[in-house]
Amino acid sequence: MSVTIRDVAKAANVAPSTVSRVISDSPHISDKTKRKVQKVMEELGYHLNYNARNLAQQSTKTIGIVVKHSTQASMYNTFFPEVIAGISALCSKFDFSISLTTGESEEEIYNDTVKMVRGKKVDGMIVLYSKEDDKVVPYLVESNIPFVVIGKPVHSQGQITYVDNDNVQAAKEATTYLFDLGHKDIAFIGEDNQFEVDEARLNGYLSALNEKNIPIKEEYIKNLKFDAEEGRKIAGELLDLVEPPTALVVANDLNALVMLTALSEKNIRVPYDMSIICFNNSVLTQVSNPPLTTMDTHIFQLGHESASCLIELINEPSTFNKSIIVPTLMIERQSCKQM
């Protein structure tokens, strides 16, 4: 037979209501009594019935996570496991679970989100991206459920709590770093400028060029969606130009690895023939050959802060929406060289 609150109360010589208050960490119970009751709970092997507690509190103690791509595709993205680790660390501290959308397409991911919200399966949502023509965020605004976006919202900023880096400034710093090494012909390789993070990094690159009075060359701006064959094509197009670039700003580390391989196949040596700087500072940038100079976006912290903001919104619905900017830091390695 399982141990009940009444069993704990009897063994601790307190009222059942006191045990309940200890479980809910009530400030009206002294630390001495809490320690006494918690010791008895441990000795008797009492385990909290989470389903009963959540039902009584009308809470699921679950946070929904809206992924950028399908779950399968996300597993190959270095951003995903690190941001989930940050979210999980905070959720574990506050006894929350997480639930991921599992759709394979944008429409399926949206439908998963609707099912979570309408089915009251979650107390709040974290959206791992910000994107033009996105249906998820407008739906969450309309549904009035607590949610947080990782990335600067494209619309309704004042109505949305978000956590982000200053991606414009980070890309500007990365581009200026290459310029200060003597590079004038600097190309930019993004992923998909429908996503706010890519657009912001492109704008930072353009801002740096304008500030240095370097002409903007449209043929230097490319998009790559982690595809080896596409990487070879882009490398060929850039190298075949009358004035090929001597340096690349690559908007994420996976695409930087693709370009490293594509350039190597064409006997272009990094950093001697081409310098590369990228973003995220995942473990891949540390073990690549050569190790990549990168802008560390502190992905774990992005996840941790987003979960903290969301739990605050869940527990205190009157909390004002806020924006939190996690700083970036340049990590210099061996992929950039003075001209």
Rank of each mutant, 00 (worst) to 15 (best):
residue 244 P to F: 08
residue 314 I to E: 07
residue 186 I to K: 00
residue 146 P to D: 00
residue 127 V to F: 07
residue 36 K to Y: 11
residue 166 D to N: 11
residue 62 T to D: 09
residue 64 G to N: 09
residue 9 A to C: 00
residue 254 L to Q: 15
residue 303 G to T: 06
residue 69 H to E: 15
residue 51 N to C: 11
residue 227 D to T: 07
residue 326 V to W: 04
residue 336 C to R: 05
residue 294 T to R: 05
residue 215 P to A: 08
residue 205 Y to L: 07
residue 79 F to G: 08
residue 170 A to D: 03
residue 116 M to R: 12
residue 14 V to G: 01
residue 283 V to M: 14
residue 334 Q to E: 14
residue 231 G to D: 11
residue 265 E to G: 05
residue 161 T to L: 02
residue 322 K to L: 09
residue 300 F to H: 01
residue 282 S to C: 05
residue 187 A to G: 03
residue 89 A to D: 12
residue 32 K to F: 10
residue 218 E to M: 11
residue 112 D to K: 05
residue 327 P to R: 02
residue 165 N to I: 04
residue 79 F to S: 09
residue 272 Y to L: 13
residue 236 G to W: 10
residue 36 K to G: 02
residue 117 V to Q: 04
residue 86 G to T: 02
residue 15 A to R: 02
residue 252 N to R: 10
residue 328 T to W: 03
residue 93 K to V: 11
residue 288 S to Q: 00
residue 210 N to G: 14
residue 85 A to L: 14
residue 8 V to I: 02
residue 90 L to V: 15
residue 33 T to Q: 01
residue 326 V to N: 02
residue 127 V to M: 10
residue 53 R to Q: 12
residue 339 M to L: 12
residue 208 A to M: 09
residue 59 S to N: 10
residue 300 F to N: 02
residue 316 E to N: 15
residue 213 N to H: 14
residue 311 I to W: 01
residue 268 I to G: 07
residue 187 A to Y: 03
residue 333 R to M: 00
residue 317 P to D: 08
residue 133 D to R: 09
residue 200 A to V: 09
residue 2 S to D: 04
residue 86 G to P: 10
residue 252 N to M: 04
residue 81 P to L: 00
residue 323 S to T: 04
residue 216 I to L: 10
residue 317 P to H: 08
residue 264 S to K: 15
residue 170 A to L: 11
residue 18 T to Q: 09
residue 181 L to R: 06
residue 63 I to E: 06
residue 282 S to V: 03
residue 338 Q to Y: 10
residue 129 Y to T: 11
residue 46 Y to K: 00
residue 197 V to L: 12
residue 253 D to H: 07
residue 1 M to P: 02
residue 233 K to Q: 13
residue 128 L to Y: 05
residue 288 S to A: 15
residue 152 K to E: 13
residue 127 V to Q: 08
residue 154 V to E: 03
residue 169 Q to A: 12
residue 277 I to A: 01
residue 286 Q to Y: 10
